[in-house]
Simulated scan of single mutants.
Amino acid sequence: MTTRTYAGHATALRHWPGGPGRALLVHCSLAHSGAWKGVAAHLAETHDCRAFDLPGHGRSGPWDRRGVYQDTVCAQMREMIAEWEAPVDLIGHSFGATAALRVAATAPELVRRLVLIEPVFFTVAYQADPAFREAQMQETSEVEEGFRTGDYRRAAIAFLSDWGGGQPWESLTAEQQEGFTEQMKLVEAVFVTNNGDPDGMLAGGLVARLQAPTLLIDGGASPEASHRIVAALDALIPDTHLVTVPGAGHMVPITHADTVGPLVTDFLT
């Protein structure tokens, strides 16, 4: 790995050589760029793959808590892509997919094709079905309650239960538990964009005019919100292909890399 500065942040970069295509992969909250190892292995013959650790994750520097977290990540991505030679194929998972969608919508010249795996852009699901938003708002989740009270350990336990890879909290080491608890502050920081409309992507019709062909992937055993989000994007984006991986949960690109990898490779070639 190497470290460079993007958008003013020390950023750890990972590289899987290949070619001739170029793919930038953006990981989910609480993970790091190594999470893409399995998918990148399937892309080796067709793509040179790069990934980076989000601020406050992996070996990247901490987030300075200035401004909006997703704004910082998108600024990093734009700099990386422009430096690398645009356009590239952009692949994102969970929060990483929300940032990938935003970059593709606001800077279409940077993105050739787009892969969104379980994007947590709740706003698009709420727009498609206001009743679903109302139902969600009436339920105070354990995660939100943890944020409200400053109990980030409680928030981490609940978050990983719904959006993790299925590993019980009790099976994690004390160091892992401490790390996830601290990183929940970053999950809290992305709520504003996961549940908002940055750059007016929806209100301004940017997503509805998205130019990049888009592959949407979710897991058959994922939370209901995941299915609603990809369904809403499938209906909104002009050129899409939606695939549900049977039996998979939210961490599908890690737990089912041998299914996701070929799907992504076929779509990008």
Rank of each mutant, 00 (worst) to 15 (best):
W16T: 10
W16R: 08
W16N: 04
P17M: 03
G18M: 12
G18T: 09
G19K: 08
G19T: 04
P20L: 13
P20M: 10
P20A: 15
P20D: 10
G21F: 09
R22G: 07
R22S: 11
R22H: 15
A23C: 12
A23T: 05
L24P: 01
V26K: 01
H27E: 00
H27D: 11
C28V: 13
C28T: 15
C28L: 13
S29K: 09
S29H: 11
L30G: 03
L30C: 02
A31K: 07
H32A: 15
S33Q: 14
S33R: 04
G34C: 02
A35N: 06
W36K: 09
W36N: 07
W36I: 01
G38E: 10
G38H: 14
G38A: 14
A40V: 05
A40Y: 01
A40L: 08
A41S: 15
A41R: 09
A41K: 09
H42L: 08
L43T: 08
L43I: 09
L43P: 04
A44Y: 06
A44C: 12
A44I: 10
A44T: 13
T46Y: 02
H47C: 14
D48N: 13
C49A: 14
C49Y: 02
A51N: 06
F52P: 00
D53R: 02
D53Y: 05
P55S: 07
G56K: 00
H57W: 07
H57Q: 14
R59Y: 08
R59M: 14
G61P: 02
G61R: 02
P62E: 14
P62K: 12
P62L: 12
W63R: 04
R65G: 10
R65D: 11
R66N: 07
G67Y: 08
G67E: 03
V68H: 11
V68W: 03
V68E: 13
V68R: 14
D71C: 09
D71F: 10
D71I: 04
T72F: 01
V73Q: 07
C74Y: 02
A75T: 13
Q76I: 14
Q76M: 15
Q76T: 07
Q76H: 11
Q76R: 10
R78K: 13
E79G: 09
E79F: 05
M80G: 03
I81V: 14
I81S: 03
I81W: 00
W84S: 06
E85P: 05
E85V: 06
A86R: 03
A86E: 07
P87T: 07
V88N: 08
V88R: 08
V88Y: 01
V88A: 03
D89E: 15
L90K: 08
G92S: 06
H93E: 04
H93L: 10
S94A: 15
S94I: 03
S94Y: 09
F95D: 07
F95K: 03
G96H: 05
A97I: 12
A99F: 13
A99M: 14
A100G: 05
L101V: 10
L101K: 10
L101R: 01
R102T: 13
V103G: 05
V103I: 13
A104Q: 04
A104K: 00
A105N: 01
A105P: 01
A105M: 02
A107E: 10
A107G: 08
P108G: 02
